[in-house]
Amino acid sequence: MSDRPYNVLFLCTGNSARSILAEAILNRLGQGKFKAYSAGSQPKGEVHPYALQLLKTLNHDTGFARSKSWEEFAVPEAPQMDFVFTVCDNAANEACPVWPGQPMTAHWGVPDPAAAEGTEAEKHFAFDDTYRMLNNRISIFISLPMTSLDKLALQRRLNEIGRDVPKAG
Rank of each mutant, 00 (worst) to 15 (best):
N135M: 10
L134C: 04
E117N: 13
D112F: 07
Y131K: 13
W108V: 03
M133P: 00
R137N: 02
T130P: 03
A121W: 00
A106R: 05
A115V: 06
T119K: 08
E117V: 11
A115K: 15
Y131A: 10
P111W: 02
D128T: 11
M104P: 00
D129C: 04
F127Y: 04
S139I: 02
I138V: 06
W108S: 06
H124S: 13
T130E: 03
M104V: 00
S139G: 15
A126I: 08
W108A: 04
S139T: 11
A121H: 03
R137G: 01
A115I: 06
D128L: 12
E122C: 07
E122P: 07
A126D: 12
D129V: 07
G109M: 05
V110H: 00
A114M: 03
T119W: 06
S139V: 03
F127I: 01
H107E: 12
H107C: 11
D129Q: 14
P111D: 12
R132T: 12
L134M: 08
A114H: 06
Y131D: 07
W108I: 04
M104A: 07
R137F: 00
D128A: 12
D128Y: 13
E117I: 07
K123A: 09
S139C: 09
A116Q: 08
P111T: 08
D129W: 10
F127S: 02
P113I: 02
T130K: 05
A121V: 07
F127R: 02
D112N: 11
N136M: 15
P111M: 08
P111S: 10
D128N: 14
V110C: 00
F125K: 15
A106F: 03
A116E: 07
D128H: 14
A115N: 14
H124Y: 13
P113F: 03
M104H: 08
M133Q: 13
F125V: 09
G109S: 12
P113E: 01
P111C: 04
T130R: 04
R137L: 01
M133H: 06
H107A: 12
Y131H: 15
T130I: 10
K123T: 11
G109T: 11
D112H: 08
F127Q: 01
A126V: 09
M133L: 13
L134T: 04
R132K: 14
K123M: 14
H107W: 08
S139H: 05
F125N: 14
R137C: 00
A106H: 03
I138R: 02
A126Y: 11
I138G: 00
K123Q: 15
A116L: 01
R132F: 11
M104F: 09
T119D: 08
D112T: 08
A116G: 09
D128I: 07
Y131W: 14
E122A: 14
N136I: 14
I138M: 02
V110F: 00
N135C: 11
E120I: 14
